[in-house]
């Protein structure tokens, strides 16, 4: 009985302390909304940025359209790294982003990827074969790489034939996961996602020629919801243009204008 009462009191105390403990807010924390294709890059860039500036970077990843909708509805992000240039431009037009802060931080490349070595040939001819029953594509309505994949298939005149085989990921990261778990044999993702894998896990891929789709210009902007003191956020955008950041970004397969 004593024991029960004691443990109830202990539990209640623990519970209360969890409720009352609030995380200490970082004044110099940058909250970044980042397009899913840039996940690997951010993971490599974060320690470099934090070391260099002493600021802290907290990134949230998602499909560009999804992040755009969240920002438009007051999501507390300081910077936005999109997978296209349309979303940043629209945020500037709607007054949610700072016009002068905008720049293209990377130009993305699309890849047709399979986790199986030797599955995807270097010309993408597999698309014309009947070897697969499913092909993974990111939702073209909200993910720019999904849109580029549709443009590519349209240019190759294969869209109608392949559409019934589509499995749609909510963003480019989920699309990759459908393929890497073996549930879908191949699909369109960002070249950077393939390059971020250890060499033994890269499977086989075709780098889609960039003339087959609209350029994937990835725009970055400073957001107006940013804290009154936007210096950390500005420092991060400046860091993205620095030679050391550009090296990392290029190594992953992006072009930097």
């Amino acid at each position: 009985m004593r024991c029960t009462r004691l443990s109830i009191r202990t539990l209640a105390g623990l519970f209360l302390s969890v409720i009352l403990l609030q995380p200490l807010a970082h004044a110099d924390e940058v909250k970044a909304a980042v397009a899913a294709n840039f996940t690997a890059a951010i993971k490599q860039l974060t320690p470099l940025f934090e070391q260099k500036t002493g600021h802290k970077l907290v990134a949230s990843f998602g499909a560009t359209g999804q992040l755009y909708a969240q920002i438009n509805n007051g999501a507390p992000f300081d910077v936005f790294l999109a997978a296209d240039d349309q979303a940043p431009q629209q945020l500037i037009a709607s007054g949610n982003a700072v016009a002068g802060s905008h720049f293209i931080y990377a130009r993305g490349r699309l890849a047709l990827w399979s986790s199986t070595p030797g599955y995807v040939d270097s010309n993408g001819d597999i698309l014309k074969s009947n070897k697969f029953e499913k092909i993974a594509v990111a939702n073209p309505k909200i993910a720019p790489y999904g849109k580029a994949a549709i443009e590519t298939l349209t240019a190759l005149k294969l869209l109608e034939q392949l559409q019934p085989k589509f499995v749609t990921g909510e963003n480019i990261a989920q699309t990759q996961q459908f393929i890497s778990t073996g549930n879908v044999p191949l699909g369109f993702i960002a070249l950077a996602q393939v390059n971020a894998l250890p060499a033994t896990e890269r499977g086989s891929f075709w780098v889609v020629p960039d003339k087959l789709h609209e350029p994937i210009e990835q725009g970055a902007v400073l957001l107006k919801n940013a804290n009154a003191d936007a210096s950390a956020a500005t420092a991060f955008l400046a860091f993205l243009k620095s030679p050391e950041a550009v090296t990392v970004i290029r190594e992953l397969g992006y072009e930097v204008p």
């Binding site: 499909a63 359209g65 999804q66 755009y68 909708a69 438009n72 939702n139 309505k141 909200i142 909510e170």
Partner: peptide, 8 residues
């Protein structure tokens, strides 16, 4: 519904 919301 999720798709409609995400694409505004």
């Amino acid at each position: 519904i999720y798709d409609h919301v995400e694409s505004m």
